[in-house]
Structure formats: structure tokens, C-alpha cells
């Protein structure tokens, strides 16, 4: 990690974006007090991660990238055993487990060993486990990776309802539509650095504008665009055009440049992401 600085407000949903190897997970692990920070300072809930590990972890819930459920136990036992690590009294833990099993809709699976759960169920159980200590801060590293749309929507709904209850949520994700929908603010990282910070809409407006026009690549269109002095980018056999006024430019392109196939759409976080971090594949 290279001189990053960020602050997350209480009660907000905050996203860390970036290609593989950008440093998202490392940042998450630092917030979780698992990876040591060699220089600089990181406070979580007003406490220093280098000196107050136990206290911070007491108030934090973690959904890691990889499901690390305890394969030696059933769904119910996973939650019960985990509650003991937080010193939650047995009776209180049993009450919370019932609520959490309802919350993530796993009541019928309570006595099933975790390996026979589907991917979506495992993810929901990991979420329930992260909530057993009623955390003030919830950290999720790619919470919906590999899930079907139904399961993703369920997780989103749960995260929104947690935010309503006042839980601060920090997440990473490669699904940029997810981040755009959920997060109040986000940062885009690459190579251990933070490239931008802002609200999803703010970041899109700043780097792309409100709309994008896509057209097939041809010499005529480039000529036309240069004449009109608009920003564009050639991506394979497609041209991305960044207009100030999408309606006006679309009309112009259709009428004056005799193009047959163009499409205008609202700009997304994905466009920002690719613009900032490039299209090169990451290892």
C-alpha cells in the first residue's frame, strides 16, 4: 500500500473498487486489524488498529472474500460457536441466532452441515455470522461474488436494512452496478493508491459525463467526431463518444454522418472504472 488516505463516516455505505491486486483486500485486512500497518496511522471507530485490536474486533463484523465457515459444524452450531468468541452469554446468543436465521432465511437449514449448503446459502450464513456480535461496523469483501441474481438481491436488501439500523458498512466489489446502487461514497484504487473518491454519481459526472454514445468503428465516424470536436475513445471495433449533450450529438451523427447504428446510454461506474484503471488484464 502506498500512502492512502480515506475517512468513512458513521452510518454510511462505503465502497472500495479496483482491479485485482489493487490493494482492496489488503486495506480491508488492515481495517480488520489482521494485516499490520508498517507506517502511518489507521483509526477504526476512534481506536488505533495497532494498539486496540481486540476492542475494535469486538464491535466489527467481517464477511471475508472466501467463505470460511466451520465445516465441522452445522449451520446453527457455526453461529453458536462463533458467538462464544465474542463472550456472548449462551441465552442471549440463542436468541440472536433465531433472529439471524430468520433474517437470512436459513431456518430450515439450521441442522445441516455447512458443506451441503448452496453458494448463496453459505454467503448468507457468513453474513449472519458477521452479525452475531451486533457490529457497529460491517466489512464485506466481495459479498455477492458467484451468487445468482436472486441471492444478490437478497443480500442487497439485507445490507440496506442494516444501514437503516445505523450500521456502518464498508465493502469491496467487482460488480460496479452493485456499488453504484448501494454505496453512498466510494474510492477507486489501483497499484496500492487511491485514484478517486466521491459519490457514485459525482465520480461518473466528473470523469465521464452523464451519457455515452456507442457507435461502430469506421473512418467516417472518426472524421465526423474530429470535425465536431467531441471526446471519444476507440475500444476494439466500437467507439465510445462522451458528449456534452447526448440528444443533440446523436441527432447530428445520424443525420450528418449518415451512421446507421448508434446507441446512447447513461454513463456508469464501469465506464469510470475502465477509464481510470485501463483495459489491460490484471494477473
Amino acid at each position: 500500500m502506498n500512502k492512502i488516505s480515506f475517512s468513512i463516516d458513521e452510518g454510511e455505505m462505503f465502497g472500495f473498487l479496483g482491479p485485482n491486486g489493487a490493494g482492496k483486500t489488503t486495506t480491508m485486512r488492515m481495517i480488520q486489524c489482521v494485516s499490520p500497518i508498517t507506517a502511518g496511522k489507521l483509526d477504526v471507530m476512534g481506536m488505533d488498529v495497532s494498539t486496540h485490536q481486540r476492542e475494535i474486533k469486538y464491535f466489527m463484523g467481517v464477511v471475508p472474500q472466501e467463505n470460511n465457515l466451520d465445516g465441522d459444524f452445522t449451520v446453527y452450531e457455526n453461529l453458536l460457536v462463533y458467538s462464544r468468541y465474542f463472550d456472548i452469554p449462551r441465552e442471549e446468543a440463542e436468541k440472536r441466532i433465531e433472529e439471524l436465521l430468520d433474517f437470512v432465511q436459513l431456518q430450515e437449514k439450521r441442522d445441516v452441515m455447512t458443506e451441503s449448503l448452496s453458494g448463496g446459502m453459505k454467503r448468507r450464513l457468513v453474513l449472519a455470522r458477521a452479525l452475531i456480535n451486533q457490529p457497529r461496523l460491517l466489512i464485506l469483501d466481495e459479498p455477492t461474488v458467484g451468487l445468482d441474481p436472486q441471492a444478490r438481491h437478497l443480500i442487497w436488501e439485507k445490507l440496506r436494512s442494516l444501514q437503516k439500523q445505523g450500521v456502518t458498512i464498508v465493502l469491496t466489489s467487482h460488480y460496479l452496478d452493485e456499488v453504484e446502487k448501494l454505496c453512498n461514497r466510494l474510492v477507486v484504487m489501483d497499484n496500492g493508491k487511491i485514484l478517486v473518491e466521491g459519490s457514485p454519481r459525482g465520480v461518473i459526472d466528473e470523469f465521464i459525463g452523464s451519457d455515452i454514445i456507442e457507435a461502430e468503428h469506421s473512418p467516417q465516424i472518426l472524421e465526423c467526431l474530429i470535425k465536431k470536436e467531441v471526446n471519444y475513445e476507440v475500444i476494439g471495433d466500437i467507439v465510445h463518444i462522451y458528449p456534452d449533450n447526448a440528444m443533440e450529438l446523436s441527432e447530428y451523427l445520424l443525420m450528418e454522418c449518415s451512421l446507421s447504428k448508434i446507441s446512447a446510454r447513461p454513463a456508469t461506474l464501469e465506464d469510470v472504472f475502465l477509464k481510470l484503471t485501463g483495459r489491460r488484464l490484471r494477473e
Binding site: Q32, V34, Q53, R54, E55, K57, Y58, M60, V62, P64, E66, N68, L69, D70, G71, D72, Y82, Y85, F86, D87, R129, N133
Partner: peptide
Amino acid sequence: YQKTFDAIIATPLT
């Protein structure tokens, strides 16, 4: 394989 230790160190245990 089970990542049990990873899961536990996310709690107040070191």
C-alpha cells in the same frame, strides 16, 4: 483448508 483460524481471528481472539 478449512480457514478456521482466519474466521476466528476476525473476532476478539488473536
